[in-house]
Design a binder for these strands. Structure first.
Lengths: 229, 229
DNA sequence: GTCTATAACCGGATAGAC
DNA sequence: GTCTATCCGGTTATAGAC
């Protein structure tokens, strides 16, 4: 059987691969993205430049590992918050603040990476098909946030709210990336005030006058889902 | 007087400069941003590579001229719409659609440029200080959109609405950039439906129950303006 | 002091030998 | 699966021309 040697090879390959990724993340954190060269990464991992490209198609692809790691950490942090907070407002504010706390050590790096994320052609784009698994996981966690809230939320709104909150989170992160204020105070102000407004609007949404708005919202979101991307 | 020779030189320089810019935009449109090299631009303009860098600090700087040109065209297009539409809903939908129509021939280019715009460090970032003049012009045009609408809009909301609409426009453009649907249909659906919702919400905002929400919104926006960026 | 040209540098990416 | 050699393009250094 060639299976043994094949799997042996792939084990060795997996080792090299993770070593390269590990060193890359280490260097990205220490020196920033642009200041870290592929040659550096290869050297630190003890492999040739070309070999790094055998495992990772581009420098950007090296980042995806970091992305998934950060997403998992953010999920853990927000889950802990959701276990103790019961009001919609506190759940939303708490979850987002917890997520930002996870990202904080990577602020500089995130800013450098954001440009790649914004490129529709890049696999790192949070809106693209390649990041759908991550995106769905995050939206699901916002669905739990909504579902576990002790507030009165109209059933039809509950369907779309998780996606809208994900969008809101993206906006907050965009703001956070540009935020150069001391202690990231501007971002924290934005979060507390805008969450307050969102929570108030959500509670008002139960009123009868809002039925047409809710219907329109539902139709909008369904329309976006239906058509091909 | 050295003035004559000095100004003669600067006239010649200005000529070279605009020639390079013109050829750059031409090539960007024909071939896209990444596929256009600085060497190509220099060659088409009939100057040496280093000379292009004498006039433009980087490839990105060549884009800024295009930006301002597109902004002016968008302004003209939306102004024409505002002259004939009187309802807030039609003014908003019309203005945004007119602006998108201006951008349409540059869709591919805009997508390629967006990654640079998203980088907080880039002067092309629509949120950065370098693009404040452009940003203010656009927000002012949205203020005219609001001011000229025949709808009942609470006075305090009128203050912030232009900036919020600018933000909405940015979101629409982001969606449009990612939109690969035939005839950009997904974007047009998004615009018509979301403008409908915004208009409905704005009209509801006159109701007394919304006073607290409006106050919170005002405070949020003022807080963002107050703190240093 | 304003402008132009040539020759490099640097880093991401690729080709192809082993 | 790993290496070496090379390409390619943005950017810079610098020498000199007007």
């Amino acid at each position: 059987m060639t299976l043994t040697s094949a799997s042996a090879r792939s084990v060795k390959g997996e080792k090299t691969r993770s070593l390269i990724l590990e060193k890359a993340i280490e260097l990205f954190r220490q020196r920033g993205y642009d200041e870290t060269t592929m040659r550096m990464i290869a050297e630190h991992a003890g492999v040739a430049l070309g070999n790094a490209y055998y495992y990772f198609a581009s420098k950007e692809h090296l980042v995806q590992g970091l992305y998934e790691q950060l997403e998992a950490e953010q999920m853990d942090a927000s889950t802990a918050v959701l276990a103790r907070e019961k009001s919609f407002k506190n759940r939303l504010a708490g979850a987002i603040l917890a997520e930002l706390t996870v990202l904080e050590p990577y602020h500089r790096l995130c800013a450098a990476l954001f440009k790649h994320a914004a490129d529709p052609a890049s696999p790192l784009s949070p809106f693209g098909p390649a990041s759908e698994p991550i995106r769905n996981r995050v939206i699901t966690s916002y669905a739990r946030l909504v579902e576990g809230a002790h507030d009165t939320i109209p059933q039809d709104l509950k369907v779309d709210l998780p996606q809208l909150l994900w969008l809101f989170k993206m906006g907050v992160v965009l703001f956070w990336i540009h935020d150069r204020s001391f202690g990231r105070n501007r971002t924290y102000h934005l979060v507390s005030r805008s969450v307050d407004i969102i929570a108030t609007l959500v509670s008002l949404m139960s009123m009868p006058i809002f039925v047409p708005v809710r219907k329109k919202l539902l139709k909008l979101m369904q329309g976006l889902k239906a058509n091909p991307s």
